[in-house]
């Protein structure tokens, strides 16, 4: 259920910047999501279509850029992307790892018509 709260947040931010840029209409919204943030995109689009009615964002298309999670091996210093689950270092099989990237969750940009 938390996608609704998240979608409301996205709409608020997009509307704020649309008004500031004197947009007549927002056509596209670009969102960046790290693999380690637990947001499901399908349901965001679903809620979006409902709550953006009668706003500058009505009919705007959502684009999701999924950023993979990056891990550093503390044993051999190899950096690799997580395939999904947390896995041992593909080079040396060590489990002494450190996650260094993948928690992004922000609104990157909007495309507008003036």
């Amino acid at each position: 259920m938390h996608e609704l709260a998240v979608t409301e947040s996205i709409l608020k931010i997009a509307e704020k910047h649309a008004v500031q840029s004197q947009a007549k209409k927002v056509t596209d919204v670009h969102i960046v999501i790290g693999r380690l943030s637990s947001i499901v995109n399908d349901s965001i689009q679903f809620y979006w279509d409902i709550i953006s009615k009668n706003t500058l964002c009505e009919n705007a298309k959502l684009h999701f850029e999924r950023v993979p999670a990056k891990v550093l091996c503390l044993n051999c210093s190899f950096e690799f992307e997580l395939p999904g689950e947390l896995t041992p270092c593909p080079k040396c099989q060590s489990m002494r790892l450190k996650v260094i990237k993948g928690e992004e969750f922000w609104l990157d940009s909007i495309e507008i018509e003036r």
Binding site: V6, S9, F105, I110, E111, I112
Partner: peptide, 17 residues
């Protein structure tokens, strides 16, 4: 009409934070 890109880069849960 041409569209124009507006860069934002704002954390989505910023209001909550």
């Amino acid at each position: 009409m041409s569209t124009q890109k507006v860069q934002i880069v704002e954390k989505i849960l910023d209001a909550n934070d």
